[in-house]
Write a protein that binds this DNA or RNA. Structure first.
Lengths: 186, 186
DNA sequence: GTCTATAATTTGATAGAC
DNA sequence: GTCTATCAAATTATAGAC
């Protein structure tokens, strides 16, 4: 049962981390934003590694909950993948919002081990979900492809599209960079 | 005509920036690595913004030179795109090497304007080159697609694949996440 | 061009009062 | 749980000697 303060800390930290990465958020900046002192944050999260780890876990869990929901509320594969893409699109639309795990992964070599482990969980979770959907809906697997590879291609497409949205500072860019046409008939 | 020291500075800075982003490289760390004092770096690059801007320009120009080369030395579209993908693959293979412009773009909101402008140049340059290749080789443009959109999809695929390579810490992951099969016959 | 020395700021973190 | 006070370290940057 996370307290109100913990929730505020995580929300503020996530916003900053998704803008500037691991070195882009600080105890002092979070404290300033939510109106407490930085020492108080250390009471809830002893070290920055603790905070970043919790941040990543929370982000992953939020995605997993929605993936499960999409699995239940959509009937066709194409509709599921559109809903999946829309998750990233909604984040990209708001100015300054990169995928937390995408940004953290780009700088994974300088992150605490507890964070990098969670990053793998995030992407494995997505890979597993996408693979299961492709199999369930009997997607055609072209020569040289596997459901796992196709899942990775979809994830790469999402993360890359978010990046280009930021590069060109254009929301329409996200949809232009996404291609789900291979699943249009399922 | 860049001096030897300037070259060393840029090489060291790029390595660090591609690992930890804009806040992941510092004058002192660069100085330590190449055996000079941090004050000497300020002689060549007055501010960190100056250094980062030059870093990004140099990275972009290196890519542009190779893209031009690929255009001349390959005959088929598929071969050109494979060579293009191989550019990113070679970088991803070496541990700790994300695309400089990919990482910088993820944190574009905290970067100096002179850097973010150069990041747009990088991606526009790639988009332009890819679009030209698709048109030159008369690639089939499916319903709802344009050469520009397909170019963006290819770029997104590359950047996303580099990210997944880091996430899973697996070189084979890059090729799994890349799909150029739509151009196999050209 | 490179150095020493140093300023000004920010950072993660701790001790102890309340 | 939150505060004040403080520390040690790292950061970008500048002045001036050589």
């Amino acid at each position: 049962m996370p307290s109100d303060t913990v929730e505020k800390i995580l929300t503020s930290a996530e916003k900053q981390a998704r803008t500037g990465g691991y070195n882009g958020f600080s105890f002092r900046e979070i404290a300033k934003e939510i109106g407490i002192k930085s020492a108080s944050i250390h009471y809830h999260f002893p070290t920055k590694a603790d905070l970043a780890t919790e941040l990543t876990k929370r982000y992953t869990q939020r995605f997993e909950a929605i993936l499960s929901e999409i699995g239940n509320n959509h009937t066709t594969l194409h509709s599921k993948l559109q809903a999946y893409a829309n998750l990233f699109y909604e984040a990209a639309k708001e100015k300054g919002n990169m995928c937390l795990c995408g940004l953290f992964t780009a700088e994974i070599d300088i992150l605490p081990d507890t964070v990098s482990r969670e990053l793998k969980v995030f992407f494995q979770s997505h890979e597993k979900w996408l693979t299961a959907q492709l199999i369930e809906h009997k997607a055609a697997i072209p020569e040289g492809q596997t459901p796992q590879k196709m899942a990775l291609q979809i994830i790469a497409n999402m993360e890359g599209a978010m990046l280009l949205t930021k590069a060109f500072d254009s929301q329409t860019c996200f949809n232009d960079a996404i291609d789900l046409s291979a699943f249009a008939s399922l």
